[in-house]
Design a protein around this nucleic acid. Structure first.
Lengths: 245, 245
DNA sequence: TTGTGTCTTTGCGCCAGCGCAATGAACGGA
DNA sequence: TCCGTTCATTGCGCTGGCGCAAAGACACAA
C-alpha cells in the first residue's frame, strides 16, 4: 500500500461509484483511499477471510470465484476497470464468500470497513450508487442462474462469450472483436460444465468458421452466429429429426 | 390501496429494514406508506412491467420467479414476512426483471419509486439497511448458483428443503418440523430439474422414512438425514462400486 | 536441443436425468 | 354424488453431457 498521488485522485472522482457527490465529499473519500497493486495470479482476498477492505478497480482484470467443499471451482464474475469489489460484504462483517484473483496486473483503490460504513452514512448518495452497481451484478447473476437451469451447455457457452465481448467492448459493436484470453477450463467454470465439453464445442465452432481457437485464447469472427445459437430454443424435441445440417 | 391504520404503523417500525432510524425518520416513512392486500394467486408485479413500487411484506408468502423465452419458469426465491421486494430494481428505473406472485393471501406496505429514492437520500441508514438485506439474498443466490453447477439433483433438492425449513423456523431447531406446502413442480423449478425427477426422489425418501409426501405438501421427519444427503460428496466416481445398499 | 509442465483435442463407454405416456389420487364446484 | 381439473407416480427408452485415457501442441527453461 502506498499513499495515493494527486494525479490518481483526479481519476478516482470520475468513477461511476462517486457520481453526484459534492466536492467536499469527494475530498473526504480521497483522503481515506489507498492505492494497492496486485500482481497477476495473486489474490485481493481469499474466500473465508474476514472482509476488511473494499476495492474500486482501476486497471486490470479480476476473477471472482467460489470453491465448493469438494474442491470444484465456479467462476461467478469477471471484473474490469471501474467495477467495485466486495461492496456488499464489507457492510455486514461476514467473511468474504469467495476469492478474488488478479488475472492481469491490477491497480485498485481500497478503503477499509470502518471508513466505508462511515462514508456511506455521511453520503447517502454513495450508498445509493453502490446499491445501483450491486443491482447490475444481481440481475446478471439471476439471469445466469436461469440460464444454467434451463439452457443447454452450448447455449450457455455462447452466451458467456457474447458477454465477454460486450464487457470488453463497452457494448459498442466493433470489428474485429477483441481477442479473449482464457482457458477452456475457465470457460467451463463460467458455464457450469466441463473442460472436455467446452473443448468439443469450440472445435465444432472453429470448423464452422465462427471463431479461431488457440492456446488460452479465442478469437471470435461471427458474433451474430453465436447469438443465434444462444437464442435457439430447441429443447431436444423428441419427435423432431435431429435438424438437417 | 387503503390508508394505513395506526395500529399497523407500530408494526412497521419494528421491521429490520428500519433498524436504527430516528423517530422523525420513521414518521416520514410511515406517512408515505400505503398498505396493500394481494390475494392468493395474484401478482404484486409482472416481469417486464415498469418498476414503480417497492414492498415490505407483512403477512403471507411470495414466490419470485422468472420466465425464459421458451416459457420455462425458474423460481428465484420465496419470501416471507419481513422481507423486502424489489428494493434494488426500484432505484434504477429498469423494468421488473421477474414476477412476484402471492402464494398465500398477503399484506404488505408499499412505497413508490420517488419516495423510496427520496427517503434513502434523507436517511443513509435506510440505504445501508436495504443494502444489507440485498447482501443476504445475493449470497444465497451465489451459493445456489454454485450448487446448481456442481451438485447432483438429489443434493440440490435436499438443500432446498433444508432451506425452506430453516426459513419457516427462523433457524431454531424445533420438532416436529413445519409442514411444507408446495408442488413437485415448484420444487423442480427451485432446483433446476423436472417434476418427474423430484417426484422420484421424494418417493424414494418416503420409502426410507425421511418424510411423508402428500398432495402439495411434504412433511419432513429426519432433517439430519437430508443434511447428510446434501453434503455427501460423491461425484459418481468411475471406479468405486455404486455404494452397497 | 531436450525436457517439463501446462493446455488442448478426441475417441469411447457410460449413466444421471429427461420426458412421454398412462394411471392413479385428491380436490372442489354444482 | 358425480365430474372436471389439477397434481402425483412410475415404467420405459433415450440422449446430452461427463470423465477417463492417450496423444498432440505449445511455452519456457536450462
Amino acid at each position: 500500500m502506498t499513499p495515493t498521488p494527486d494525479s490518481d485522485l483526479q481519476l478516482l472522482t470520475q468513477a461511476a461509484l462517486f457520481d453526484g457527490l459534492t466536492e467536499a465529499q469527494l475530498h473526504t473519500i480521497q483522503q481515506h483511499a489507498t492505492l494497492v497493486r496486485v500482481p497477476r495470479r495473486t489474490f485481493f482476498f481469499h474466500q473465508g477471510e474476514a472482509a476488511t477492505t473494499f476495492y474500486l478497480l482501476r486497471e486490470g482484470q479480476v476473477r471472482l470465484s467460489q470453491i465448493n467443499p469438494e474442491g470444484k471451482q465456479v467462476i461467478i464474475h469477471l471484473f474490469g476497470p471501474g467495477d467495485v469489489l466486495a461492496v456488499i460484504v464489507v457492510l455486514s462483517n461476514a467473511p468474504y464468500p469467495l476469492s478474488a484473483e488478479a488475472i492481469t496486473d491490477c491497480v485498485a483503490w481500497a478503503w477499509n470497513r470502518e471508513t466505508a460504513v462511515h462514508l456511506m452514512e455521511q453520503c447517502p448518495r454513495l450508498a445509493i450508487n453502490g446499491m445501483d452497481m450491486v443491482a447490475g451484478r444481481f440481475l446478471e447473476l439471476q439471469n445466469r442462474y436461469r440460464e444454467l437451469s434451463t439452457e443447454r451447455v452450448e447455449q450457455r457457452v455462447a452466451r458467456a462469450l457474447i458477454r465477454l465481448i460486450h464487457q470488453r467492448n463497452g457494448y459498442q459493436e466493433q470489428k474485429p472483436y477483441p481477442l479473449l484470453s482464457l482457458t477452456r477450463q475457465d470457460l467451463a467454470e463460467m458455464t457450469g460444465t466441463t473442460l472436455y465439453t467446452v473443448s468439443r464445442i469450440c472445435s465444432s465452432w472453429e470448423q464452422q468458421g465462427l471463431l479461431e481457437a488457440g492456446r488460452e485464447q479465442l478469437h471470435i469472427h461471427k458474433l451474430e452466429e453465436l447469438t443465434t445459437i444462444a437464442d435457439d430454443l430447441r429443447p431436444s424435441p423428441p419427435n423432431f429429426p435431429p435438424r438437417p445440417n
